[in-house]
């Protein structure tokens, strides 16, 4: 089996748009919105989720024939929790300030529905390598939305991107004011709503019927 057959490639690219975990499957919203005030936090969070999804998908897929179906949720939670503890310890060791700002949301990766959803829907019924790719694809789709939302919020909310001032000083002198609304948590919801709107007006098949 080739490493990137066209089927596997589709597994990687579909979650980026038509099967996007955040905007189409509506999974993992909690953390997606809370960590998007700064772009740096969003990138770290996106990468953490990508790593956890990919590896726990792989592990569960390896174990899938040995897990009794009655206790599978607990087994899945333990595998995911182990991965999250690893990620949490690594974040604390190398990017302590970001880990402090992400606070409980790193721990909440355990109950992030993207991970549980992919484990249930994909890893329990597929071979390890496609599961791994599926995990990477879904993690990337999640990270993508996070980064877009965080970019908009940080640019308009604080006038910076990754902590570097982008909006020139002359704008402020001419009367430009940072949009304080963007820093507030509720704007993240409205932004995701708008992203869904834009995405669905390009992909008509995603429009919900009454």
């Amino acid at each position: 089996m080739s490493i990137f057959s066209s089927k596997n490639f589709k597994l990687l690219t579909e979650p980026l748009n038509l099967q996007n975990p955040v905007t189409v499957q509506i999974l993992g919203i909690c953390s997606a919105l809370a960590v998007t005030v700064k772009l740096k936090n969003a990138i770290v969070m996106g990468l953490s989720v990508l790593v956890v999804t990919a590896i726990s998908n792989y592990v569960i897929s390896l174990l899938r024939n040995y897990i009794p179906s009655r206790i599978r949720i607990i087994v899945q939670l333990v595998v995911v929790a182990t991965m999250v503890i690893l990620v949490d310890q690594i974040l604390r060791a190398f990017v302590y300030d970001v880990s402090k700002q992400l606070s409980v949301y790193v721990g909440l990766i355990i109950t992030n529905c993207i991970i549980m959803g992919r484990l249930e829907a994909f890893a329990m019924g597929n071979k390890p390598w496609p599961s791994f790719i599926d995990g990477v694809g879904n993690g990337a789709g999640y990270a993508m939305i996070l980064i877009v939302v965080a970019f908009i919020r940080e640019l308009f909310g604080s006038g910076t991107v990754l902590g570097i001032h982008i909006i020139p000083q002359s704008f402020y002198e001419a009367g430009y004011v940072n949009n304080g609304m963007m820093i507030m948590p509720t704007m993240a919801l409205v932004l995701v709503g708008c992203i869904i709107w834009i995405q669905r007006s390009f992909n008509k098949e995603l429009i919900e019927k009454d």
Binding site: I26, C30, S31, L33, A34, P185, L189
Partner: peptide
């Protein structure tokens, strides 16, 4: 509304 927890 303050933490977006339990959104799903």
């Amino acid at each position: 509304f303050a933490f977006f927890i339990g959104m799903c």
